[in-house]
Design a protein around this nucleic acid. Structure first.
Length: 580
RNA sequence: GCACCCAUAGCUCAGCUGGAUAGAGUGUCGCCCUCCGAAGGCGAAGGUCGUAGGUUCGAAUCCUACUGGGUGCGCCA
């Protein structure tokens, strides 16, 4: 139910008719014809560029096409007025009944209003978070987690079949470091004095893990060499860290469909299988890379390595998959992981990375392109940094001193809902300022509050109406006579509601959930303005003096609440029924 | 040196994959509560969309070259 699609269909019908009667030449391409909300509301409800786009290929003046099309459009009952404006736009004004039916339709559809069919059930894998299992999640991970989760919701809303996946980096050297750090805490639990040198994680969060290890194995590993305990402790430690991370995710309201272990790729032939696939395509060879220019690498010496010909799929240089000592590079398991995703039959892949991994995008795309023979697109979304402040002052963080701010610190202080919304008020590739004090402020310059407040106001109206004994449910409201819903100030809000499906569609297409947050702010703003006009103009109040709810009046605020609720749902934020 | 990202009001940022007179918040100035929640609303002022070209009916948006900032660049993930 997208009003813009409906009217676009009407415009295209009109163009077909003009083609049939010879006004327009046959065979014109209508692909660039759009129907959009005009920037200036004075121009009407919708505008189409049809006449301007078609003028040149048709060999006609824009104005002539526009005038002919206007005749066709005004014949439709939904169009109250159509006129040619500017360089050849056709501005449309729609009949009040269109808006009234839209409100009824929103109330009938409920949370489904705004679902679009862009995805057509295509299967998409969204990989996000993917923090190393070496400690609790910190603020940097938080933004990626919130973004990925909202993007997944958004794609689901747009008709994709979404799988949310977490890639556990439990295969590299960093988990050995974790294991040694836990071992030190284990010795500590046995009363030994230990020193945390460089190359270990000193964080307090491992104390409990060390104790738990002691409870499990007693003193079996005390005084033993690594060869005895490393493998066991590594597994024990990563399991403990993943339990920690799952709790962090739960606190943030993020639920994954699938966890994929990097370790499961080693020693199982899966990396070899992925590289064999590339080899069969002639993309693996032995060679020597040029040193990077302009950057002085100490102890650089040319070495022959096993390389992936990623340049054949758009990369700048070929990339090594084996180290000179014969071990895999970190790239190799990533290739195997994405090979696995491709083999699972996804139609589209999305990776959410930190912005510091930007240099990794091309080779990853090249790998997926090669592995899927170009069938499966990989979209990589880069997440910029979060700058934490409190009262305008930067929050000092030091990883060495173990004083970095964790996800839990943030969620405990400001709540999951506020954290999520604020993290989505900026485009993913723009840095984000997060001020602990400001995000809790209850005022207009806090968008979370402002949107929640609009929803709470609607709930307040409904409570009053209920207290007065009139509580029509949404189905009854939708079926009621809404012809009284016709004041220009009211229709302004309805127009905003009409944009919702279109916005979901665009946000899903661009992969930009922040658009939802901005839209909700705009909608809330339109609603607050209408609310305030009720102060001076009793006709615009939602409730009559005795608090009775006339359907034509309370259907609109209910529809606003439905859309805010749906939008917040995509962001993963719970709408509030009252502000306290 | 190369690649990717960014540059829009004093400040923080949007700008609907090319549309009409470029928008919000904040800050500054001025208004609005006998009235459903003023935790709000209305208005004024504020711009060479980094620079220079190009593409076309039309460019903040697309292309090229610059300037300035960020990130990354074999055997770390």
């Amino acid at each position: 139910m997208n009003l813009f699609d409906d009217i676009k269909a009407l415009v295209l019908d009109g163009l077909d008719a003009l083609t049939r009667d010879g006004t327009l030449p046959a065979g014109l391409d209508f692909a660039n014809v759009t129907v959009e909300p005009p920037r200036d509301p004075a121009h009407g409800d919708m505008a189409t560029n049809a006449a301007m786009v078609l003028a040149k290929p048709a060999g006609l003046k824009p104005r002539d096409i526009a005038l002919a099309l206007v005749d066709r459009l005004t014949a439709d009952a939904r169009v109250a007025q159509a006129e040619v404006a500017g360089p050849g736009f056709i501005n449309l004004r729609l009949a009040d009944g269109v808006w009234q039916r839209l409100v009824a339709g929103i109330l009938t559809a409920g949370a489904d209003y705004g679902r679009v069919t862009r995805g057509q059930g295509k299967r998409v894998n969204v990989e996000y978070v993917s923090a190393n299992p070496t400690g609790p999640m910190h603020v940097g991970h938080t933004r990626g987690a919130v973004f990925g989760d909202a993007l997944a919701n958004l794609l689901a809303h747009a008709g994709y079949d979404v799988t949310r996946e977490y890639y556990i980096n439990d295969g590299g050297a960093q988990v050995d470091v974790l294991a040694r750090s836990v071992y030190l805490r284990y010795l500590e639990a046995h009363g030994q004095e230990v020193a945390f040198e460089d190359g270990t994680y000193p964080g307090d969060y491992l104390i409990d893990v060390g104790r738990a290890l002691k409870d499990k194995v007693g003193d079996a590993y005390v005084g033993q060499p690594e060869s005895v305990w490393l493998t066991e402790v590594r597994t024990f430690a990563t399991d403990a860290m993943m339990a920690l991370i799952r709790e962090d995710l739960a606190a943030l309201g993020v639920r994954m469909d699938s966890f994929f272990s990097e370790k499961s790729l080693y020693g199982t032939g899966r990396i070899e299988a992925a590289l064999a696939d590339l080899d069969a395509k002639g993309l693996i060879y032995q060679g020597v890379l040029e040193p990077p220019k302009g950057k002085t690498l100490e102890d650089w010496e040319p070495r022959e390595q096993t390389l992936f010909r990623s340049t054949a799929h758009g990369d700048d240089v070929d990339r090594p998959v084996k180290k000179s000592d014969g071990g895999w590079t970190y790239f190799a398991p990533d290739i195997a992981y994405h090979y696995d995703k491709v083999s699972r039959g996804f139609d589209m892949l999305v990776d959410v990375f930190g912005a510091d991994h930007g240099g990794y995008v091309k080779r990853m795309k090249a790998a997926v392109s090669a592995l899927s023979d170009g069938r499966v697109p990989l979209e990589v979304k880069l997440i910029q940094l979060v700058r934490l402040t409190r009262g305008g002052e930067p929050v000092k963080m030091s990883k060495r001193a173990g004083t970095f701010v964790t996800l839990r610190d943030v969620v405990d202080q400001v709540g999951a809902d506020v954290t999520r919304f604020v993290m989505l008020t900026r485009k993913n590739d723009a840095p984000l300022d997060f001020d602990f004090d400001k995000v809790l402020e209850q005022s207009k310059d806090n968008p979370v509050f402002y949107v929640q407040y609009a929803h709470a106001r609607v709930c307040s109206v409904m409570r009053k109406a209920a207290a007065a004994g009139t509580v029509p449910d949404d189905a009854a409201l939708a079926a009621a006579d809404l012809s009284g819903l016709s004041h220009p100030a009211e229709l302004d809000v309805v127009r905003k509601l009409a944009e919702w499906p279109r916005l979901v569609d665009i946000a899903a297409q661009t992969g930009e959930p922040h658009r939802v947050a901005f839209y909700l702010y705009d909608l809330a703003s339109a609603f607050h303005a209408l609310w305030h006009r009720g102060n001076a103009e009793p006709d615009l109040r939602f409730l009559s003096d005795d608090d009775r709810g006339d359907p034509a009046k309370i259907a609109l605020p209910r529809a606003v609440a439905v859309v805010i609720s749906a939008g917040l749902g995509i962001l993963g934020v719970k709408p509030l029924e009252e502000m306290r």
